[in-house]
Simulated assay, not measured.
Amino acid sequence: MTTETSAAQGPAPNPRALTWTRRRHSAARFWRAYRGHRAGLFGLAVLVLISLAAVFAPLLVGSDADSVTHAPGDAMESPSTEFPLGTDQFGRDLLALLVYGARISLTIGLLAAFLSVAIGTVVGITAGHYRGVYGTVMMRVTDWFLVMPTLVLAIALAVVMSGSLSTIILAIGVTTWPTTARLVRAQTLAVESRPYIERARALGGGHTHIMLRHVLPNVMPLVLAQTTLVISSAILTEATLAFLGLGDPTAVSWGGLLQDAREAGAVSAGDWWYLAPPGIAIAVVALAFTLCGRAVESVLNPRLGVSR
């Protein structure tokens, strides 16, 4: 009788298929909630457009747009039909340089933010789980980084190390993680006070099992929201370092364009077309990431009551 009933019910469902089904449903619910935030949709649309322009930059503006020897115009030309944003001191099209600069600025911002959030997540989870001497020491180190000016630390690292893109990413990543660590530690303490953590320990779950299988999935929504917010500050920090001449001189970035404009005397000459577009691009991208981050934070934690 039992065999006939089991046969009538069909084969047991595949656990992996059930997991992917739940993930698809969760993603669909997230997108439905995210679509209700007009500001978040606007920020996402802006980021998609800028990202597409950065990816297809060689098709849009040519592959040698940053070449000094093949500059198409004269030095410091004002905006015209041929050059909508004018030219720089070498005669290069500033619109093309602005498109290429999106590649470097977005890449550094994304990688530096991921490094920062990864460090903060590891420190926050471990400090919240191991509450003895280790947790106390890690929080004092975190407090020290919090009270130190982030930009000053990033400048110090960029000066000591070689001026390259990896140096900028490392300098931003290792100086901006404390806020994430504090938030993740607080969430870890809240998660580990729940009864199922005690049951996991009673059933023989070790430290690694509890942190990876129980704590990490519960703090990931907070980590995701924090990542989108950190990216905007990372882009601003990269632009600041490049403007101070601490970036890679061979790479075209928005901060590097501002540095070139300063060195070319665009400020004193009143050449606004050299200064305004990179600054506006930095502000727009930072605002777009912030809007997306606020929307994600509101969806994942509706109690925040972020306005739509």
Rank of each mutant, 00 (worst) to 15 (best):
P79S: 07
R38I: 13
W20V: 11
W273I: 04
R308V: 12
R23F: 15
T188M: 06
T176V: 05
P58Q: 09
P217A: 07
G36W: 09
L183R: 05
V117Y: 10
L110T: 14
A33C: 10
L94V: 10
A127R: 02
G163V: 01
L41P: 07
E198R: 10
D88P: 00
A112C: 12
T175E: 06
P249F: 06
T2E: 13
P15A: 10
G205H: 06
G128Y: 01
S166I: 11
H209M: 06
A57H: 03
L229W: 09
P84D: 08
D260G: 07
G135Q: 04
V230L: 09
F56H: 07
L44N: 00
A251V: 04
A190N: 09
V174I: 15
T107I: 08
L106P: 01
I282R: 01
V159I: 14
V55M: 07
W20I: 12
I210Q: 07
T136I: 09
V68E: 13
L236Y: 02
V55H: 04
S26Q: 15
R24N: 07
G206E: 03
R140E: 05
L241S: 03
L98P: 06
I168Y: 00
S6F: 14
F42C: 10
A127H: 00
V141Y: 07
P15W: 10
A281M: 15
V160G: 12
I125M: 08
I50R: 02
V267W: 14
G293E: 02
L59E: 12
E77W: 07
T87Y: 02
L165C: 06
L94H: 02
T5D: 13
A127S: 15
N301P: 08
A295Y: 00
L111R: 06
Y196T: 05
W20E: 12
R29Y: 06
W177V: 06
V46W: 14
S162C: 02
I169C: 13
G163T: 09
E77T: 12
A8H: 15
R262Y: 13
T179S: 11
D88Y: 10
S253H: 03
Y34M: 04
F56D: 11
L258T: 03
C292G: 05
A264V: 05
M161P: 05
Y100H: 13
L85N: 07
G205A: 08
P178S: 08
S253N: 10
V122N: 06
A45R: 06
L49N: 01
F243S: 03
L110H: 08
A57N: 11
T176I: 02
F243V: 03
L97Y: 09
G124I: 01
N218A: 15
G206Y: 02
S116R: 02
C292W: 02
P278H: 03
F289L: 08
V55P: 04
C292P: 03
A12T: 12
I235G: 02
P149E: 05
Y34D: 01
R201D: 07
A239G: 13
W144I: 11
A283V: 06
A7H: 09
L52R: 06
T81I: 11
P278C: 05
A96G: 14
D74E: 14
N218I: 09
I104L: 14
L98G: 00
V141I: 15
